[in-house]
Computed example of a mutant assay.
Amino acid sequence: MTLCRDVAPVESPHPAPGDTWTMIAGAQQRESSALPLAPSPAAAELDRVRSAVTCALTEFLDDQRETLAAMDDSLVPVADEVRALADGGKRLRPLFAYWGWRGARREGAEDDAAVLRAVAALEFVHASALVHDDVMDGALTRRGRPATHVGFAAQHGHHRLTGDGASFGVGAAILVGDLSLVWSDELLRRSGISPAALTRAREVWDTMRTEVTAGQYLDLLRAAGGLPGAQGALTVARYKSAGYTVQRPLQLGAAIAGAGAQVTDAYSAIGLPLGEAFQLRDDVLGVFGDPAVTGKSADDDLREGKQTLLIALAEEAADAGGRRLLARMLGNPDAGPADFDALRRLIESTGARAMVEQRIAQRTELARTAIAEAPVAEDARAALDALAVAATTRTA
């Protein structure tokens, strides 16, 4: 088992006004600075938390791989797939949860390393959602590699197994997603936080997992013609992604800290608009992002027919020809690059992209105002503000 050395938190002052840090592809850079500068204490803390989460996941997955291998060697690819899903990523959910705890913690009540292990469990919830979402969307890639169901279908062919390879891949992916969700519970339980903190955390944890599963269904329903229009897109965004990305992780940290209603409500005021802005940024990147940075084709969301706010607004503003183009090409597996470029031009020309960008900016500003007013420790306020910028200005 890999051993991770506990690293003490950096007790640091609030960064100077205007010293906002953005995280792009895992690195921090100071805004509007042309020269490389030494990282601020706030940036160093974000890196520390991200590294500690990765280490907690590695330790846990090393143990689980041994357990599955002892059952049968053929289970090793399952463990390795969960590891691949958990590798990389921005660690935003654990970061929000950790700083939700730091903002309201009582000195000595919980061990920092135990809290880091507890919030790392959020990455398994995220992995589960990604796998199941890719199955439902028929996505081909995820983070620059084949989507889980595609990878297992390829293994079926490589090993010359019997039956339908695509069905095997889908079945395997569903189980990988289920296993990730099981392991999220196990890592939270084994994290080492106190029994009282674990009991408090469970209420938020259960609500979060119910919401994200319900959100996946709402997404499926919208793809089939239910929940129409812009409001339908925002409803799906809230429950499928926004809540479990920011609001519930913040409240999970508050629950571990034993915070009262004032902090919990403040975290909702931060989390709901910021989570929405995060998801809307994801939607924009899904259509206009650089594949070399995002790790997926910019055509995938259009090929899969994702009914995002971008699409809803474009449909509302388009003329008859534009609506025909959307009806004919959005979600059409036979459409080609030229067709998707035409859809992108339509989204731009109708003003849909500009309207979504404006909403991202408005919701981000609302969240940052709530952060400034929240009854939390100053180091947490600085970190949460940096995370707000990172979540909504990212390029991947």
Rank of each mutant, 00 (worst) to 15 (best):
L37D: 12
L37I: 09
L37A: 13
A38Q: 15
A38Y: 12
P41G: 14
A42M: 10
A44M: 14
A44F: 07
E45V: 08
E45H: 13
E45I: 09
L46M: 14
L46D: 07
D47C: 07
D47T: 12
R48C: 05
R48N: 08
R48M: 07
A52S: 10
V53D: 03
C55T: 08
L57E: 02
F60R: 05
F60W: 03
L61F: 01
L61K: 01
D62R: 11
D62N: 06
Q64T: 06
Q64S: 10
R65C: 02
E66L: 12
E66F: 04
T67N: 10
T67A: 13
L68C: 01
M71T: 11
D72A: 04
S74K: 02
L75R: 02
L75E: 00
L75V: 00
V76P: 00
V76N: 01
V78P: 10
V78Q: 10
A79F: 07
E81D: 13
E81V: 07
R83N: 07
A84G: 10
L85P: 11
L85R: 13
A86L: 10
D87V: 01
D87A: 08
G88E: 03
G88I: 00
G88W: 00
K90R: 06
R91Q: 09
L92K: 04
L92H: 04
R93Y: 05
R93W: 04
P94G: 04
L95W: 00
L95Q: 05
L95G: 01
F96Y: 08
A97K: 02
A97P: 02
Y98K: 09
Y98A: 14
W99D: 02
W99I: 00
G100W: 01
W101D: 14
G103S: 09
G103F: 12
A104V: 12
R105S: 14
R106V: 15
R106S: 15
E107M: 13
G108D: 15
D111K: 15
D111E: 15
D112I: 11
V115S: 12
R117I: 07
A118W: 03
A118H: 05
V119T: 08
A121E: 13
L122R: 04
F124W: 14
